[in-house]
Design a protein around this nucleic acid. Sequence first.
DNA 1: CACGCTTATGCAACTAGTTGCATAAAGCCG
DNA 2: CGGCTTTATGCAACTAGTTGCATAAGCGTG
Lengths: 189, 189
Amino acid sequence: MSLPHAILTALLEKPSSGLELTRRFDKSIGYFWSATHQQIYRELGKLEAEGLIRALPSEQPARGQKKAYEVLPAGRDELARWTAASQDPKPHRDVMLLRLRAAAVVGTEGLEADLRRHRELHERQLEKYREIERRDFPPGKDGPEDRLRHLVLRAGIDLETFWTQWLDHALAEFAGLPDAGERPDARKG
Amino acid sequence: MSLPHAILTALLEKPSSGLELTRRFDKSIGYFWSATHQQIYRELGKLEAEGLIRALPSEQPARGQKKAYEVLPAGRDELARWTAASQDPKPHRDVMLLRLRAAAVVGTEGLEADLRRHRELHERQLEKYREIERRDFPPGKDGPEDRLRHLVLRAGIDLETFWTQWLDHALAEFAGLPDAGERPDARKG
DNA sequence: CACGCTTATGCAACTAGTTGCATAAAGCCG
DNA sequence: CGGCTTTATGCAACTAGTTGCATAAGCGTG
């Protein structure tokens, strides 16, 4: 149940319409909590019905019209409550690790190319994060809010660095594997 | 659509009943692809209907009876196909990072304790992985399959190490924040 | 102004994963 | 044997997230 809280956070940072939120999810909050525009519109409707946000009155709500929302005090309270509440970490799911484990049984054929491609994608994401860091956190911009937001961005940077290095390691391991790329025991069953 | 492939991998490593699979998911494959027993039973039914696995004939299938499955050639082919097919990495979702971002807006009150708790959980998981590494990958056990499986385990070890360190970093950052644990601008709205 | 393109909002149907509970056999124990 | 616990399988209902499509206003252009 994190999407409503992601939206509340984004709206507190800046009141926005559904589409604006969607765009901001695509390039900031979405890096660790992605959402499609349909999820966002649906959730905005629910949050409004619950009285946690409201549509800004200025622009009349009509189809094809921007409809911006702002957070109400009840919404801020709910977000504060949720932020402080203890939560167990959810197990992460990682398809690539699953594929590697499968490859140990059915052979590595075809996997190396995708490993290489993922390495490039992670490196590109890393460069994007570094760009954001340069833009949003120049030396000196270190108030308490900045430090927290910077901390979160650092997690993104460090994670992409981690995966880039790990994939290098995996590729090196692949290079040391028997030539054909097919495990010796593959298809024996 | 990874759960069926996770199950195929597990069954190729060793034919098992639903409950055995559930247990193995809890302590091995589940570290990067978790599943409940209901998911597993449902998926076993589907895989059998599709002709990718079959119930081992030995023990008659009755309620309260173990019913073990093995992978059929079509299942192995499907798994090999899936393993080799290119897939885009899915964006990871991380609630803790979201909470930190929210804390930049509504205040950090109550968060530090959970940060500390998560640190301990990650450290405990790390110790568990290291135990598995000692048990399953003693020096010398380095055939091609071992090396791939070890690679996957190393990802788990390195990730837990990463999070332990990152949480240390986050806690150090918290220590440097204004005393009360509440952001200056919190509740100003 | 008629056409097509972009912006913006939204419904419906689907897939995946979770939670709560039901059922039944097997083993233990007084 | 009668009740209790553990093992094992499974259904039903629910929540969360995804995909495909519909609708309509605004804007540019021949």
